[in-house]
Amino acid sequence: MIVVSERVNTVKKTLNLPKFDATLNTDVCDARNNAELTLKLKLGFRQINPVGGAASGMYNDYGSATGTPRKIVKWTPGEWAAWKSNFVRSAQAFWHGKFWLVNQLGYFGYKVGAQIYLPNIWCRFEMVGSEASSGVHHHVIDVVRLDVTENWFGSHSTLYDSLDTRSVQKGTDSAGHAIMQRAHVHEVGHLLGLGHVDIGKAHCLATTNTNASACYGIADQDKNSVMGQGMQLRPEHAEPWMTAMREFVKVETKSTVYTIPPATGLQIALRVLDVLVPFVPKMQRQYPRKPAEVEARTLITAR
């Protein structure tokens, strides 16, 4: 269920979507600044400690009874706080502010003086990490602290280890260069709803096991994607923000200052595409546009 809450005297709305909360803020719009869409992911972290209060013990890969046991040690308050802080800070920095959604249909128009502007959407990301025992979370993440003798643990999107924020080699490109990745930013991609880079291709059909190694990329470019084996972001990784905007236009699209005119001639086919994809992701800053610029499909990257 989607809950809409509106703050009095502001134009800021929050949708509580299944995977994250989304807040659209049009208060900040002016001739140079777009609307801001912030996805908030609330994670509850939970320590996995050796049983019986022991200083050290064993824990199996993936938390599975059949996984390989690895040596773990008890979390200390200082290590736990530092790990959580590093996780949240680095994951947020990775996903925050990297995308702009171009507003193809002229939603959310406003006036600056006599001039009408149509904002694009700047994609922000906020991660809130707290103890799993308190509050409401989108996901609960269990975390083991590996002993210094261990250098690897079998993690998945809701079970991490203390080394998962480090950069490690996940693959090799065709030239023999190492492809490095920090596992937690990949996993946060999953938590936002993104799948592996090659899903949908012949070697990784969506109907098969999409965790198969081929789904992490075959071509160098795909291997280097953050949803492959690397750290590179691509426009399609804005899909969680596009998903949120699809929900926002259902509840908040009307503008008293501007409605895009009906398409004519050759523009009709393009308008059909715009209706299907009303917000197009870009990885370069886009400035708010005037009506004529929207209608001419002109991108404004400097003003």
């Binding site: 995977k19 599975s64 609960v140 999107s157 096991n209 190694s213």
Partner: peptide, 18 residues
């Protein structure tokens, strides 16, 4: 022959809680 064993991601409720 190469294949993959999925390591179960926990099922999540609508609000993401286990």
């Amino acid at each position: 022959v190469a294949s993959t064993q999925d390591v179960g991601r926990p099922s999540l409720t609508d609000n993401g809680v286990k």
